[in-house]
């Protein structure tokens, strides 16, 4: 299964699940990364990390490690 950190810039995907065991999972869900939601990887920072996603009409930056717990 692919994870959100494997998206390439400009690519869209639908979230299948968020890995519960990840410590930031709850916050990631709270901020709107819920299953069924479509996201797009917009930018990555100069050092390839963090990643900026378009979600629910806004842009949220999260670390690669955190994007890894988002199944797509």
């Amino acid at each position: 299964m692919r994870r959100a950190d494997e998206l390439s810039i400009g690519e869209r995907a639908v979230i299948k699940d968020v890995d519960n065991s990840h410590p930031s999972a709850h916050r990631i869900l709270e901020i709107g990364f819920t299953p069924g939601q479509e996201i797009e990887l917009l930018n990555c920072s100069v050092f390839n990390d963090p990643l900026a996603f378009a979600i629910r009409g806004t842009i949220i930056a999260i670390r690669k490690k955190e994007a890894h717990c988002i199944h797509i």
């Binding site: 869209r12 479509e38 797009e40 900026a52």
Partner: peptide, 28 residues
């Protein structure tokens, strides 16, 4: 039916500006 929500694009102007402000070299 698909349990899938339509994609809502963020603010157009912001997306364009971010291409520069978060650009690998220009951004820095």
């Amino acid at each position: 039916l698909n349990n899938r929500r339509p994609f809502v694009k963020p603010d157009e102007k912001t997306l364009k500006l971010d291409k520069i402000f978060l650009h690998r070299y220009w951004g820095l």
